[in-house]
Amino acid sequence: MRLRKARFKQERGDVGRSPLREAFHRLFKHRAAVIGGIYVILLILVALFVDTTIFAKIIGREPRPLIAPKHYAEVSFFERDLPPGTPGYPLGSDYLGRDILSRTLYGTRVSLSVAVVAATVSLVIGLTYGVISGFSPTGVDNVMMRFVDFLYGFPLLIFIILLQAYFKAVSRQGATGFIGVMVNIDKALGGMFFLFVALGILNWIGMARLARGQTLSVKQKEYIEAARAVGASNLRIVFRHVLPNIIGPCIVAETLAIPGYILTEAFLSFIGLGVTPPTPSWGLMISETYQGLRTYPWETLVPGAALATTTLAFNFLGDGLRDAFDPRLRGTYTK
């Protein structure tokens, strides 16, 4: 029995694993990527369970802190600027006596929401746009890509700043209708929603270019010709043959773009165009405290370290994914 099983395993090995399986195998051998991945998973858990919002929404109660020791807006005027290690304030307190650990933990919510939402929006729009463009006749492709080129000409950051300024003005005027609904969502999310919109609205163009390029190269492959020969419809070809073959590089590119979104959010909050205080965002926490860097360094360094390690973790993960999914790099590393 034992022998047969071993042989079976050996046989399977000889036959070869599926490309996806092999990619994951390579990913798990990439030590930095594993560390980055574990860190990201931890962050996601923290973001989900930093307080009891999820359960509270179900049973209809006020959320209370779960992982975080305190609520992020709990002010204690007489316990301000305490150094890390003070009882009750493991990472110290800020200038209004708010617990820095709790605020930093709550801050993962903003950063990760931005990362997930902006990445999803950009992936969905960019992939759809790029595949359609790449799969269409040259004329349509040209028009669609010139539009992307046109959008590329926009100074992205300035555009986002203008959008944010506009959204803030709209939300103060108390708009009605569709915009009014958006304003209310934004208020419920502590100013995050418009951040998503502003970030998602232009970030898909890089993805669209990549997806189009990939589609163009895949389109020439023999298996597409074969599928066509047996009479598969365009839709079937796109979903069964093109998408599965280009999704890898696209996801990799998107993962590598995530640190950019997180940093953009931090930057926007830093200049006062991000989330509304007291919702904690790492960028906002840094901007509120950097002037006191000399006297109360922990107030700036803790959110700064959180921002840096998160960016690093996503970069490691993205690197690992790229190595794992990019066939050209297959075998260029060992162990």
Partner: peptide
């Protein structure tokens, strides 16, 4: 926009929120 005003505003926001817990105070 100013760091000093932001601190005072958040402090007063906290005072108001404590005195009137069901109200919403938004800083812009």
């Amino acid at each position: 926009v100013s760091e000093g005003h932001a601190r005072i505003a958040q402090a007063i926001q906290a005072m108001w929120a404590k005195a009137f817990p069901k109200a919403k105070f938004i800083i812009e």
